[in-house]
Design a protein around this nucleic acid. Sequence first.
DNA 1: AACTTACACAACCGCGAGGTG
DNA 2: ACACCTCGCGGTTGTGTAAGT
Length: 321
Amino acid sequence: MGRIPCCEKENVKRGQWTPEEDQKLSSYIAQNGTRNWRLIPKHAGLQRCGKSCRLRWTNYLRPDLKHGQFSEAEEQTIITLHSVLGNRWSVIASQLPGRTDNDVKNHWNTKLKKRLSGMGIDPVTHKPFSHLITEIATLPPPQAPNLAEAALGCFKDEMLHLLTKRRIDIQLQQYSTAPTNTNRCIKHEDNKDETIEKIKFGLSKAITEPDMFPNYKPWDPIGATSGNPEGGYNSFSGLDSGFHYGLANLGSGGDISPWNQSMCTGSTCTAGEHGRLHEKLEDEQGEDSEGRKGTRNGSNIFNSDCSLWDLPSDDLINPLV
DNA sequence: AACTTACACAACCGCGAGGTG
DNA sequence: ACACCTCGCGGTTGTGTAAGT
């Protein structure tokens, strides 16, 4: 026995609401309230499913709703709450007067998620991509491959988005089954599946060759690791931590935000332990005949000539357009 | 100007929680 | 305790429009 439908589908209109329908629903609810959504369309003279009426009311017609662009403060709130709560849109929306869960969800999916990805931050975990890979690489072998797959699933789309938008060429010399012209970059747009495979390969390399990662202190966005035995990540999750992603500074070239590019990517760190990681990688990669670093052994996504991790700083700092 | 692609938002779907008889 | 029902939630899809080629 299947699930009972919420309404009789055949007599129900679907798709966009007309102004007349909005008017009917609004005036009915103004007079009678919102009790029993199943009966509302019938009584209001609408050929709509009760569920559709509820959605239209809660997401669009409610008089207390705020329409229009999200403010910077609202975006900051969404990001901060998302780092704590995850995809609990209704809870997040409850902290934003006049905004619905659908609004928040849409805004996250269309803008904020990509913005974080563009900063080199995994929008699921709110950690830098580079650190996630390092974490996976330090796991024992039985766990690592599965987690690598999971991690790939988490931010594959973001990586592809970056690669696609920025038209970045990828070079993975040892991996390629193509002729061994080692410095040839492969145009990603010609073969998306190939790009995915390369990303997978990069992850698996990071796992199977964990020695390439020195033991360095975990990412510590506000230097608060000392107060948090679990490491620095959670320290910015607290609502009262004063943490800010520094959206206002994006693209300004300013260095106020803790999420500046040097800290977010594994490739161009200029200070601290992240910087040492990058130096180590470069040292291991050596130089080619033209004095360029990182071409000797281009077998992973970190040291390929034109990898995600070596994007120009602006590409990672600026929000994707 | 025509076509394609990307984006933003609205709407739908299925599931689970909770209330009620 | 159970079945039924309503509602709310989160994920996904559809659609209109702007931007790019």
